[in-house]
Design a protein around this nucleic acid. Structure first.
Length: 373
DNA sequence: CGGTTCATTTGTGGTCGTCCGCACC
DNA sequence: AGGTGCGGACGACCACAAATGAACC
């Protein structure tokens, strides 16, 4: 909590560094490489919902250290997100090479508040709790925001993920980086309070905002003993479930170190969780279902399986032995997804790009300059 | 310690060739 | 089941300005 307070003070001390490039009012929390812009959640939605092209822009959280680059590393020890540069400086040069870190990924599209919560690792919180955050205090029995801000993220690794291109500005590769967990986004660094605050505001603007999938039951409750003995603090589905399961699908050398000795192949668990996310996205968006805001949560649940139920399915699958058919299906989905995975190219030096585009070529290759010209 | 010089490394894009998965016969 | 063709994905290639690092004054 003290750290949290310090973080907030830090934010207050440097308000200008994180000003939204679009509205110049709110604190910027996201970075869009395609636009080279720092954005608050509100402007991010405004900007990236205008047309289908913009929705393809991938956005990252803003680096907690330099406040100017997309964060690609989460330091669980510091509860901070870093860009490659700052991660390098923080964890290589000095102090804390042993810090527990893991990669982060951005998100694209135009996610709803609920989806953003999920992306940022707040799926436990839910939109409803977000909206009525005041009623659930951190002191006493309820779950205040601050309670959700403290978690441990598992160390994970997949060989594929380690091969992921470094699209940040330099060539530094994260050092001693553990494999990617299924949910690579489940973290939001030092600015959690600001993130939650902006999401809360955003949530109020969404139609049907009070009637959401936020009957999401904290995952740790559904997954009692297993994850708890792993030392998780109820950080949400992704953090927990990722550890849980999954048979080895592609011989990944990196496994979830489940003390239970269950199958814990990371690659496969990734696929499961990814498929799971896709399933979630395919569900009717109740946020957009403006016309049906009357039914109570329970009633609605009975008609339309809430996302929370979908989330619950995974641990159920996870804890039983997958039969061969399921395994084959999951593996093929994983391969398919891996096949189509794309990363936006990041231009570090625009001047070089301009020059390269204007250079003479022979069959696509750069040709020598004509000395006589 | 700061500035300068020099050597080395990096980054850039269009095309080609190779590999792989898939469909079809 | 095996062979063939097609299409998508992806790495290699090229020259050179810019960036970076080391050495020196």
């Amino acid at each position: 909590m003290t750290e949290l307070k310090e973080d907030q003070e830090d934010q207050n001390r440097q308000p200008q560094r994180r000003l939204c490039d679009f509205c110049s009012e709110n604190t910027a929390l996201l970075y869009c490489r395609a636009d080279c812009a720092k954005l608050c959640f509100s402007c991010d939605r405004e900007v990236h919902s205008t047309n289908q092209l913009f929705t393809k822009h991938t956005r990252w959280l803003l680096c907690d250290s330099c406040d100017s680059s997309p964060a690609s590393i989460l330091c669980c020890t510091d509860s901070c997100v870093f860009c490659h540069n700052c991660d390098w400086e923080s964890h290589n040069l000095s102090l804390s090479p042993a810090h527990e870190r893991r990669p982060l990924e951005g998100f694209a599209g135009c996610p709803s508040v609920s989806e953003l919560l999920s992306i940022l690792g707040f799926e436990d919180l839910g939109k409803k709790a977000l909206l009525y955050g005041d009623s659930v205090t951190s002191d006493g029995g309820g779950y205040g925001f601050s309670d959700w801000l403290v978690w441990d993220t598992p160390s994970v690794v997949s060989l594929d993920d380690l091969i992921a291109p470094n699209d940040s500005g330099h060539n530094f590769q994260a050092i001693g980086l553990p494999p990617l967990p299924k949910n690579r986004n489940a973290a939001c660094g030092k600015h959690k309070e600001e993130i939650l605050s902006q999401l809360r505001e955003l949530s109020k603007l969404e139609p049907n905002s009070s009637d959401d999938q936020d009957d999401i039951v904290p995952f740790q409750f559904m997954e009692p003993a297993q994850n708890r003995h792993l030392g998780f603090k109820g950080s949400g589905f992704m953090q927990n479930s990722e550890h849980a399961v999954v048979p080895s699908a592609e011989g990944s050398a990196f496994n979830w170190c489940s003390d239970t000795g269950e199958f814990t192949d990371q690659g496969f668990s990734s696929s499961l969780a990814d498929c799971f996310i896709e399933t979630k996205c395919l569900l009717p968006d109740r946020d957009s279902d403006v016309g049906d805001a009357s039914g109570g949560a329970n009633e609605e649940q009975s008609h339309n399986p809430p996302i929370a139920e979908t989330f619950q399915m995974v641990p159920k699958i996870a804890h039983r032995e997958l039969n061969s058919q399921e395994r084959v299906t999951a593996v093929s989905r994983y391969k398919e997804k891996k096949k189509t995975r794309r990363y936006e190219k990041h231009i570090r030096y625009v001047s070089r790009k301009v020059r390269a585009e204007s250079r003479t070529r022979i069959k696509g290759r750069f040709a020598k300059m004509d000395m006589h010209q």
